[in-house]
Computed example of a mutant assay.
Amino acid sequence: MRPLRIEFCGEWYTVEEGAPFGIGREADLVIDENPYLHRVFLTLRAEYGLWWLDNVGQLLSATVSDATGSVQAWLAPGARLPIVFQTMHVMFSAGSTAYDFTVHAEDDFYNTSLTAETSTAGTTIMPVSLTPSQRLLVLALAEQVLVQPAGRATVPSSAEAAERLGWSMTTFNRKLDNVCEKLDKIGVDGLRGGRGKLATNRRARLVEYAVATRLVSADELPLLDRAREESEEARAAEA
């Protein structure tokens, strides 16, 4: 089998057959000294004629997608996934920090194409639709990841994201609930914590899903400044 190559923060790592290649806080690929990150979180290994990505951690999960974002999977603790794409993106969060790296395979694998189609009017038809305010919320949470898409970025707190948009915390939390419930209904894992409750780390999981599936893009970030200006103008008018 041909070796894999990993791209992380502008650096390249080669994975050969043999012993598992670890990824984590103290591993072959050191992601960060973040205490919320497992010493070894993920491993890459060759087995049964395939390369596999294993989640050997106990708490953290990872979001895996192909190069187009049209295929996406949630890799929970103890789960493993065969690598069948030439380019595979991996995203995960530890505490308030989001990380991502790319796995490049030289073997001939399957090609994927975007499931979203473009109409004659130029409008993209996505698998899930967001209202304008819901899109703003996701953009505010994913802003740092979209600005620096390779490596590490901070996922803002709810208070920081609400301030970025000029919203009250009540408005932000209500809209966050709505977005998470909408995605949970279409089968997105990790947004509910059981017994009908929303997961405590739902902001990070929402960012992972939105970026991995191209639900939002860096091209839309100017909408945030516009929304902030409109909120300030509305408050000034009320005063």
Rank of each mutant, 00 (worst) to 15 (best):
S168G: 14
R195D: 15
Y48W: 09
M1G: 06
A236V: 01
K197Q: 14
G49R: 05
A140N: 02
L44E: 05
Y13L: 13
V90D: 04
A227V: 02
A27V: 09
R228P: 00
H38Q: 13
S70K: 02
Y13C: 07
Y13V: 04
P222K: 08
Q148H: 07
S168K: 04
S158G: 15
E33T: 13
D54F: 09
L165P: 08
A234I: 03
R80C: 13
D225N: 15
H89F: 09
S217W: 02
S93A: 15
T14E: 11
V207M: 09
I23A: 10
L221S: 03
G122W: 04
R2V: 06
V30Y: 03
G95R: 07
I31K: 01
V147Q: 11
A116K: 01
L165H: 06
G151L: 08
L137E: 10
T123D: 12
Y110W: 06
K185M: 12
D32F: 03
Q148N: 09
E117W: 02
G187M: 13
A105D: 05
P35K: 06
D177Q: 02
R203C: 15
V40L: 08
W51A: 12
E47K: 05
R202L: 15
L53T: 07
R39D: 10
F85I: 02
V155P: 03
A73Q: 14
E230R: 05
E181F: 03
R203N: 11
A161I: 08
L183G: 02
T102F: 03
T124W: 10
V188M: 13
W52M: 14
R192K: 10
G190D: 04
T14N: 05
T112G: 05
V216N: 00
G49N: 02
A79F: 06
T131L: 11
S158E: 14
D107H: 12
F8A: 03
W74C: 12
T200V: 13
T118D: 05
Q72C: 15
T154G: 02
S157L: 12
T63C: 11
Q86E: 15
D28W: 08
T123I: 15
E26D: 06
L183T: 04
Q72D: 09
A234G: 01
L60G: 04
L206M: 12
A239K: 04
G10Y: 11
T213W: 11
W167S: 05
V179K: 03
L42G: 01
V103D: 01
A140L: 06
R226Q: 02
H104M: 13
S158V: 08
L183H: 11
L139K: 07
R39K: 15
E11D: 03
P156D: 10
T124V: 15
D184R: 02
F109L: 09
Q86M: 04
E163S: 12
E17I: 10
V155H: 05
E229C: 01
V145P: 00
Y99S: 09
G57I: 05
R39S: 14
S158R: 14
E163K: 13
Y209R: 03
M126K: 08
T171Y: 02
N34T: 07
Y36Q: 13
V128G: 00
